[in-house]
Amino acid sequence: MQSNKHLPADTHMPETRSGTPDLAGYARTIRIATARMIHRAKSSHIGSCFSMIDLLAVLYGRILRIDALRPAWPERDRFILSKGHACAALYAVLAEEGFFPKSWLDTFYQDGSALGGHAMHSVPGVEVSTGSLGHGLSLGCGMALTGRREARPFRVFVLLSDGECDEGSVWEAVLFAGHHQLENLVAIVDYNKIQSLGAVGHVLDLHPFAEKWSACRWAVREIDGHNPDEIECVLRQVPFEANRPSCIVAHTVKGKGVSFMENELLWHYRSPSDEEFQAAFAELSSAS
């Protein structure tokens, strides 16, 4: 089932989307919308958004069984953005998907806006509020457990950051999901290898990372988190193994898509100036 079949006509969408959605084009649209929001708002976390946008594009473009006209449809797949600080990209996707008017994006981060700087469940299409790291996987475990016990068809996807995996609560949930064989649960880690104050390898090294999940009885795949075909291919294979939750370690680049932002810690915080935004816009627009 495609998530986009109920969408209104959309002038900003790549033309191929209504037939065979152009995932690269979709991701480009989301990157531009996200950059515009963060620039206008003078807010942060553009690097964290850009590293996961290809994952979001595939999830919303091809994988998630959701319906923008029925955000509370009981059997919808659940998507939890556990790295809630990257919500600008999620909001941009949800607006593209028709969960709310695109005009809302112009209010991002503004006084009295519906769209704040971390994911909020009051926004149509946002499953749960996040922002404090290390909460999403536990919420996902509770949903997946309930879904399995009631033989309901929905799946639960949780997108985490790598820095988030410093949180002990993440590993409580990892243990739980493995023990309870939650095969309807999928954790995707946006492994861009940069966290708040530096490289993950220097701050609190996660290596060997995939092995940690495997050791807790998850079925793990490692992918290039910017290759739409690879992302789609792996997401179509979940669950990877019977009776195991699935973990996708997505190797990504912080700030992906704008050369001067890529792999730069600064873009965890910095909001693009007018000139930087124009440069980013030009680069994103010219990418094919």
Binding site: E127, L137, S138, G142, M143, A144, L145, T146, S169, A173
Partner: peptide, 9 residues
């Protein structure tokens, strides 16, 4: 967290 996830279902 699990309890909240279950409650939301």
């Amino acid at each position: 967290g699990i309890a909240a996830g279950m409650a939301l279902c």
